[in-house]
Structures are given as C-alpha cells and as structure tokens.
C-alpha cells in the first residue's frame, strides 16, 4: 500500500471508507469540491441512498478486513430525505461504536456524523479531522491472526 508522495506526512496512504448519504453528505462533499476546499485524499466514498441503509455490518466488515477508518455521514437528524432513516441509523451506529472496543477494535476508527448538502466547509473540516485522527492511530492491524496468515500463504 506504500505510495510515494511528495509530502512526507502522506508517505503511507490510508484506507478510509466513507459511506455518504445521497441527499446530504454526498452533496456536501460535492459542494466542498466545487468550492475547491483542500481535502485529504485518503477517503474512498461509497454513496448510499440513506444512512438508514447502513447495515452496521458494513462497518464491521470494513474494519475486520483492515480498513484504517470508516466514516458514515448523512443528513442532520430530523432533516432526512426519507424523514426518519437517520433516526434509525443513529441508534444502530452508536450501538456498534460502543461494541467495537469490546471485540478489540478501536472505536476511534469509526465515526458517524451529519453534514448537509450546503455545508461544504463543515465537510472539509470533518474529513480533515477524521483523516488526522486515523493518521495518528496508524494502520489498522485488523483481526488477522495466525490462521489468516496460513490461509493466504
């Protein structure tokens, strides 16, 4: 995964998976791009119809398989395009966030937040903060153990 960048701070590329809702946060990220706000490049965005579509298992699987971080972002509560999708989502996501450390996976590698389509500035801030946080945590060891090594050998 090592890539050569000019900037020494970006020597090691991170894999951060971003699940963004179609109606708010995806638009917010687009706004940030259109406004040419400078953003870290570690985020790979997956567009979902709504945060209500987020199965907590998407996040669990990403982190188990070694993604360095997972960011989920949607419409602000009570502003959901489908009225209540993010109200279901926030309960599920919070439960997952609290459960991950019990299994030995750092809960700080996962963040969920709300960014509206007009909040390009806020999106820039969220992405920058989260990328910095993941960078300080370092690469995710995943759950690979001896049998995983044997399976791929």
């Amino acid at each position: 995964m090592t890539q050569s960048h000019d900037n020494p701070a970006h020597k090691q590329a991170l894999t951060i998976v971003g699940f963004l809702c179609n109606w708010c946060s995806y638009g917010g990220a687009d706004t940030a791009g259109v406004c040419r706000f400078k953003q870290p490049t570690d985020l790979r965005i997956i567009r979902v119809p709504c945060t209500g579509r987020m199965d907590p298992l998407f996040i669990a699987r990403s982190l188990i398989l070694g993604a360095d971080g997972v960011l989920v972002s949607g419409c602000h509560p009570k502003d959901c395009h489908y009225a209540v999708g993010n109200l279901y989502a926030r309960r599920r996501l919070e439960v997952l966030k609290r459960m991950l450390p019990f299994m030995g996976i750092d809960g700080d590698r996962f963040r969920y937040t709300w960014v509206s389509a007009s909040e390009g500035q806020r999106w820039q801030q969220v992405v920058t903060e989260f990328s910095e946080q993941i960078r300080s945590l370092g690469p995710n060891p995943g759950v690979t153990g001896k049998s995983a090594a044997a399976a791929t050998a």
Partner: peptide
Amino acid sequence: MHLPEKFMFHFIHALHLA
C-alpha cells in the same frame, strides 16, 4: 476458515441480536 470470517460471523450473530 480464517479469523476475519470467524469474526464476521460472530458480528453477524451478535449484531442481529442487539
């Protein structure tokens, strides 16, 4: 039969029972 799959199965079972 490696660890990520085993973790994943138990995440499925546990999270579906949350």
